[in-house]
Simulated scan of single mutants.
Amino acid sequence: MMRHLIRTTAIGALFVSSVVFATPRMTVDLTLPEITEGQYHRPYVAVWVEDAKGQTVKTLSLWVWDEGHKWLKDIRRWWRKAGREDMSFVDGIASATRPAGHYKIDWDLKDEAGKPLVPASYTVFIEVVREHGGRDLVRQTFDLAAGDFTAQLPATTETGVIDIRLSGMTR
């Protein structure tokens, strides 16, 4: 009986603390459309955040072909801003390309060093490049000082609609 009461109390406290102290986070819902015309290759995708000065704050996701390091420079903006300086960093964050489908990328609003971001203006970038295909770079600016927000970016040749949500912010 006592063990059950302690477990129930602990679970209740955990639930209440998770509701009261919601962790700020951003979610990027990205869709890669099925492309049936021509030769199809899975795209390289980079999702990252820059501050108002154009400095890379955090690379959230990098999807590349297993032997694709020589092609990383085709993800032009990301490569110039974050990739070319440190190949061990690239190796540490890269994962395999993805087929057409819906993907959710979560971010805890911390920089590469694990420090929480200060309230300021930032931009999330999504760059999608496909061999024998197109190249799209979309972006959405957000301000941490403004609190929660939702944005929907229209579909492009290489992406479907992209939904971006910032939640758990306190003002």
Rank of each mutant, 00 (worst) to 15 (best):
D86C: 04
D106Q: 10
Q140V: 01
T97G: 07
S88Q: 13
G134L: 09
T123K: 05
T59A: 09
D51R: 00
V138H: 01
P43C: 04
H41M: 11
H69T: 08
T150Q: 03
Q55P: 10
V124H: 03
S88Y: 11
V129E: 02
S95Y: 06
T141N: 14
M1Y: 15
G168H: 02
F89Q: 07
W71C: 06
V124C: 08
V118F: 12
T9V: 15
E158W: 02
S167C: 03
D143L: 07
H102E: 13
T123I: 12
G83V: 01
V45E: 01
L62T: 06
V64W: 01
L32D: 02
W107Y: 07
H41T: 08
V64I: 12
W65F: 12
L144V: 04
K70I: 09
S17L: 14
D29A: 11
A13K: 10
I93M: 05
L32N: 00
E112C: 06
R165V: 06
D74N: 14
A113H: 11
W48Y: 10
G83I: 05
F89W: 04
R77W: 01
H41P: 05
T141D: 15
E127K: 00
F89Y: 11
L117E: 05
K110H: 11
R77K: 11
T9H: 15
A146L: 09
V118C: 11
W107R: 07
L144N: 00
K70L: 10
T159S: 03
T141L: 12
L137I: 05
V57F: 06
V57L: 03
G38F: 06
R171T: 08
M2K: 15
R84N: 13
A113D: 14
M26L: 14
T27I: 12
S121F: 11
P99G: 07
R25N: 12
V45H: 01
R25E: 11
A22E: 13
R84Y: 10
S95R: 08
H102R: 15
R80C: 08
R84W: 10
Y40Q: 13
E67D: 14
R76S: 03
W78K: 03
I162T: 01
E67W: 13
D148E: 08
F149I: 08
I6T: 11
T97H: 09
L153F: 00
P24E: 06
M26R: 04
D86Y: 03
H41E: 14
T27F: 09
D91Q: 13
A96M: 15
V28T: 03
A146F: 08
L144K: 04
G134Y: 06
V20S: 14
D51C: 02
